[in-house]
């Protein structure tokens, strides 16, 4: 039996991914802050075919609650997998006005998920199987004027996941880093962004990535090439650009 714990389950990007898992008949644990939304989502997953659905109150900033959840996960029967969709993205201008916000951005996008995954790592090592999907962002590939604090946090998370992959890969646990370009969710509401992907497409790409054990997955795929170009721009030129 495939078990999936999904952190940030109420995010717009997580929903179609959950449905794919539900259709495959997986056992789901939906973790997030908004219990009412989680309950609704749970009904949806159940009706679409999930074997079992459980909702778990979870806040990435509440590290004190982590160990209890880790213990619960350690006791799970069957294969344990995790997907982390947790993240927040305040406007860069809001952060410029109040730099103390940086703490929250780094907690939500990097250190919170990293702490949880580091607590889970020994559990996964002992199990010797399973998949961890961490959702980063193409914003982490280069510091851009419009989004560099969020980008820095996602870059930190990506580097962390790379190390975790190195560690857990030896024990049969696969870690996949997902780097979505802009996705049509509430996070990007009203923004005009190039190559916007639908959450359904992201879910399909993630499922494909899991199947072929991709290490780093760009979605939509075109972002792999776009970011290759953007990373290659020399800093003296890049610093004058606003992209």
């Amino acid at each position: 039996m495939q078990n999936w714990i999904v952190l940030g389950a109420t995010s717009g990007m997580a929903r179609p991914f959950l449905r794919r898992l539900a259709i495959d008949g997986a056992r789901l644990m939906l973790a997030g802050r908004d219990m009412e939304e989680l309950e609704t989502l749970a009904k949806d997953c159940k009706l679409r075919g999930a074997a079992e659905v459980e909702v778990i109150a979870f806040n990435i900033r509440d590290t004190a609650a982590f160990p209890a959840l880790i213990d619960k996960l350690a006791a799970t029967q069957g294969v344990l997998n995790l997907a982390c969709f947790v993240g927040t993205m305040p406007e860069q201008s809001a952060i410029d006005a109040d730099p103390m916000l940086i703490d929250e951005v780094v907690t939500d996008n990097f250190t919170g998920p990293a702490k949880f995954l580091s607590l889970l790592a020994p559990v996964m090592e002992a199990r010797g199987e399973g998949v961890i999907v961490g959702v980063g962002s193409v914003a982490g590939d280069r510091g851009r004027v419009g989004n560099y604090v969020y980008g820095a946090a996602k870059a930190g998370f990506a580097t962390y996941l790379s190390g975790l992959r190195n560690r857990l890969g030896r024990k049969g646990v696969h870690v996949m880093t997902v780097k979505p370009g802009p996705v049509e969710t509430r996070m990007t509401e009203g923004m005009k962004l190039p190559f916007m992907a639908k959450p359904e497409q992201v879910a399909e790409d993630i499922m494909g990535g899991i199947e072929r054990r991709a290490n780093v997955l760009y979605t939509a795929r075109i972002w792999y090439f776009i970011m290759m170009v953007i990373r290659a721009i020399p800093e003296p030129i890049f610093k004058k650009m606003s992209i």
């Binding site: 109420t10 717009g12 908004d34 009412e36 939304e37 049509e184 969710t185 509430r186 509401e189 009203g190």
Partner: peptide, 11 residues
Amino acid sequence: GPVARPEKLRH
């Protein structure tokens, strides 16, 4: 015009 894309009832 503006198009809102709420995901939760409270939005």
